[in-house]
Design a protein around this nucleic acid. Structure first.
Lengths: 111, 111
DNA sequence: TTTATATGTTCTACATTCTAGTATATGGAA
DNA sequence: TTCCATATACTAGAATGTAGAACATATAAA
């Protein structure tokens, strides 16, 4: 019953959370923007897609083709959704961290 | 006023937390054990030292020579302590994650 | 009916981090 | 003086992080 858990890298975790948060609206460009805001950093679009692709390959999320933006047109969007295994990985990653951080007082905002 | 923040890798974060938690007793072998328990995984000692060295190079922690184990002897320990910059990095890393996870309901244990 | 432009994705390459494994050092005990 | 337990240092390859340029395409404008 105890497979060695699978942990996410830092950026993988951030991207996966962004996809979750964006829900119905999770596609590359938007994900990039969300990640950029949360990290307060410029994040290249290539970095985001490379990570999305890896996460999909691992079965943590799934993607499918959508439509282009109605008004302005342009290339069609590729939407993403987090799969159960992704939620699991998110929880495992968080679990290990929490076991260590629990009770530690260094101003960690947990809110 | 806003330097681009510096984020920790997954394992770096884990190791840094372990050093904090171990306080006066933070040296390689013990850190490895603590990390191994928290992650429920076999962690090689080489992985731990490589990460400790990197963290020290970045100024996130500091190390100094201690004594050998009184009873059994053996090589002297190298103790580690987290520096202010390390706490800062821990908080920044956590901050970005929290901005994304806040309000998201997927069973994340925050306790 | 071309051309421009905004929107969005794919590809490629390199840097950094992760990780295991092996070698090395050293103090006390036999 | 050899052995053993305790610990750290080194090396190399795999995985992850990251940027940038190239490519694709639907509408609007000329």
């Amino acid at each position: 019953m105890s497979e060695p858990k699978d942990y996410l890298g830092h950026f993988e975790e951030i991207v996966l959370l962004a996809v979750m948060r964006l829900a119905e609206n999770a596609y590359g460009a938007k994900i990039r923007q969300t990640v950029s805001e949360a990290t307060e950093r410029d994040v290249s679009i290539g970095a985001v897609y490379a990570t999305l692709d890896r996460l999909e390959r691992k079965g943590y999320l799934k993607s499918w083709q959508g439509e282009a933006t109605p008004e302005r047109g342009g290339r069609a969007k590729r939407y993403f959704r987090v799969e159960g295994a992704g939620v699991q990985a998110l929880n495992d990653t968080n679990g290990a961290r929490n076991r260590l951080a629990r009770g530690l007082d260094f101003g960690l905002d947990v809110a």
